[in-house]
């Protein structure tokens, strides 16, 4: 877990580079660790609060450690009228966690997302960015079984 310094250094001199650095760090670690936030603040000449403010303004970034697979359930209107609310409940029950939590084995984190632009097949979830359309509560075990 050392190379966040290198990542930050790559973007250091670019205007607006802090967001690009956060993307790169999150890609590597699945979230933005606190020490990386501190380092970024220093590199971009911001206070730690400001760097934290940037990271937490954007819902795509997480400053909380997350599981190996991040399940995001779309909670925008087109998915909700297609049963997205029931799907979310079913996922919570199946995984035994609430929205925003990570399973004890560190495998899954359950998050809500706004529209991911896959409204042709509602309701939609994404797992590590991959969209899966038309998910019903019955399909959950089969879908999650391929994420070990």
């Amino acid at each position: 877990m050392a190379n966040y310094k290198e990542i930050i250094a790559t973007y250091k001199d670019k205007p607006g580079g802090i967001i690009e650095a956060f993307h790169a760090i999150q890609k590597e670690f699945n979230y933005i660790p606190e020490e990386a936030l501190r380092e970024a603040a220093k590199a971009f000449g911001l206070s730690e609060a400001e760097a934290f403010g940037v990271a937490t303004f954007y819902s795509y970034f997480s400053v909380k450690k997350r599981g190996k697979y991040i399940i995001r359930v779309c909670t925008s209107a087109p998915c909700m009228v297609a049963g997205g609310d029931k799907l979310l409940e079913a996922l919570e029950n199946y995984l035994g966690i609430k929205l925003g939590e990570t399973t004890a084995d560190g495998r899954f984190t359950l998050e809500a997302t706004e529209c991911v632009g896959q409204c042709q097949g509602t309701p939609v979830i994404t797992i590590n960015g991959k969209p899966i359309p038309e998910v019903t509560p019955e399909r959950i075990p089969e879908i999650l079984s391929s994420y070990k």
Partner: peptide, 24 residues
């Protein structure tokens, strides 16, 4: 430049703030 999940960034001035590395 990749947006990071803030709907308001579709608004021009917020989008610009975001490219500048600030909250949108």
């Amino acid at each position: 430049f990749q947006g990071s999940g803030a709907f308001v960034c579709g608004e021009e001035t917020a989008l610009i703030a975001s490219i500048e590395g600030k909250p949108g």
